[in-house]
Computed example of a mutant assay.
Amino acid sequence: MDETIANFQRWFTEIAVNWNNCERAGQKLLATILGNSPVAHAMCCEMGNVQLVNALNIAADLESEGTAKAIRRFCESFERLRAYRNFVIHGLIEIPRKDHHMGHGVTTLFTESGKGSFKIGTQNVLDGDLRAVAEWLGAFTLLAEGTALAIQNDEPSPSLDKFPLPARMAKNSRNHPLLERPPQSSPA
């Protein structure tokens, strides 16, 4: 198998697995805040991502300053990483290739969105970008797990202040060609 394709598959898989772990860690964190009962866990494991972040942000208001900060940091990171995860996992993927000028593996992702209007987009993603998303997901999973343990043991919450938040995702998109309006002729 080509090394570029193997690297893409590795990071794609790590993003998918790390996302599932991060999502579950957030659910466990909320269940811990809600008392760690079987009912709390049953309720939280069925929550969607938007509901989970909303509930965690509200719960942060009820916690100590350090714990609240860790919860809010997790939520902000979770939202940013969700955009990256969705972009990578749901994008239509061109076969990864080696960029011989830059020496990196490059994958082109094609996306479509119906939010507001029908838009299409393409974006080149480097192997390093995929690796960074997988690593961010792993780090913020540990933050959620560590915060849940700190709450259980009545200890200070961990801090990832030195671990930078991922930048907000910028998508390269435009209106779908079917929505492009032909130039209007001006009256003579």
Rank of each mutant, 00 (worst) to 15 (best):
L109R: 00
E94Y: 00
M1H: 08
A60W: 00
P183T: 07
T4D: 14
R174M: 09
K115M: 10
L30P: 06
R80C: 09
H104L: 12
S157Q: 05
A31I: 00
S117F: 06
A167V: 01
V106S: 08
F163K: 12
M47V: 10
F8V: 02
A68N: 02
I120K: 13
F74V: 01
D99S: 12
P96G: 04
F8Q: 06
L165E: 07
D161T: 03
G48R: 09
I5Q: 12
H101Y: 12
A60P: 05
A150F: 01
G103C: 03
E63M: 07
M169L: 11
P166Q: 04
L126M: 15
F87R: 09
A188T: 10
H41Y: 11
N86E: 03
M102F: 10
R72T: 06
T141P: 07
T122C: 11
D99F: 02
M43V: 11
I33N: 06
S186R: 14
C45H: 09
V53F: 01
I93A: 08
L126T: 14
L29D: 01
P158H: 00
V133T: 15
S77C: 11
A167P: 10
L142N: 14
R181V: 09
G103F: 01
N124G: 13
S77Y: 06
L143F: 07
T107R: 07
L29W: 03
I58M: 13
K28L: 10
Q27K: 07
E63L: 06
K119Y: 07
N54H: 15
Q51T: 08
H90K: 02
V125H: 04
T67C: 00
L149R: 11
P182L: 11
S113R: 07
N57H: 09
A150K: 03
N57V: 00
R97V: 04
K119M: 10
Y84A: 03
P96Q: 02
P38C: 01
E180Q: 11
G66H: 02
W136Q: 11
A150S: 06
G121N: 04
G66T: 02
A40I: 03
S173N: 08
I58H: 11
N175H: 09
A188H: 12
C45E: 09
I95A: 14
G105V: 10
R24F: 05
A148C: 01
A16Q: 13
